[in-house]
């Protein structure tokens, strides 16, 4: 029965109220249909790393502040913590598959799909807009494709990632902060001209 219920990401009201302004040097998109899994695992112990990689069909990034792309995106969040971004409908299944595969390891897998909202920030002034609220050095030489970082954006904590194709940034934010962060982004982007793609 649950499949008949429309899932909500919590930004419906915000999206409905947005108005694009001026020439769109910034695009803000609410990326729907994403599922998220949180994985805790000690990469130095046993064969959990390989097991997880097999279950995901892609490696876990071991270099700090990077992510791997394959069927899913796997973000490094800490030396024993990863966030797996996948399709919403696959998340539950993937989570239980992982849990089964890692049953013999000291690992923790939690479905946190409903706890995160992903935003796409693109356009030629995207970086300038992010720099208004983020203390990271966003210069592509310092923070380029394939890199990600948990950091602060305005007064929220986010996971910021640079898409492989350099087309823009992905901002993953805790659900309860998403409305605030979108308002902040819209305000910061307004002087540049901002476009909100119709979902």
């Amino acid at each position: 029965m649950s499949e008949t219920i429309e899932r909500r990401h919590g930004l419906e009201a915000f999206v409905a109220a947005t108005e694009s302004v001026g020439g769109a040097r910034v695009e803000i998109d609410v990326l729907t249909g994403r599922g998220f899994l949180n994985l805790r695992l000690d990469p130095r112990k046993g064969n959990g790393l390989e097991t997880a990689a097999r279950a995901l069909n892609q490696p876990l990034p071991l270099t700090a502040n990077t992510f791997t792309t394959g069927e899913h995106r796997v973000y490094w969040c800490g030396p024993d913590e990863w966030l797996i971004e996948t399709d919403e409908e696959r998340a539950t299944r993937l989570g239980s598959d992982l849990a089964k595969a890692l049953a013999d390891c000291h690992a923790a897998i939690n479905d946190v799909s409903s706890g995160h909202v992903a935003l796409g920030i693109a356009g030629e002034d995207a970086r300038t807009v992010l720099a208004k609220g983020c203390t990271l050095d966003l210069d592509p030489r310092e923070f380029g494709p394939g890199q990600c970082a948990r950091t602060g954006l305005a007064k929220a904590t986010v996971l910021l990632a640079v898409a492989d194709d350099a087309a823009g940034y992905t901002v993953i934010v805790a659900r309860s902060f998403a409305d605030y962060l979108c308002r902040w982004l819209a305000n910061a982007a307004r002087p540049h001209g901002v476009r909100f793609p119709v979902p």
């Binding site: 700090a64 502040n65 800490g78 030396p79 203390t135 990271l136 970082a149 948990r150 950091t151 602060g152």
Partner: peptide, 10 residues
């Protein structure tokens, strides 16, 4: 030690 130099606010 893991993430490199970051601002105190983090």
């Amino acid at each position: 030690p893991w993430c490199g130099s970051r601002a105190e606010t983090e």
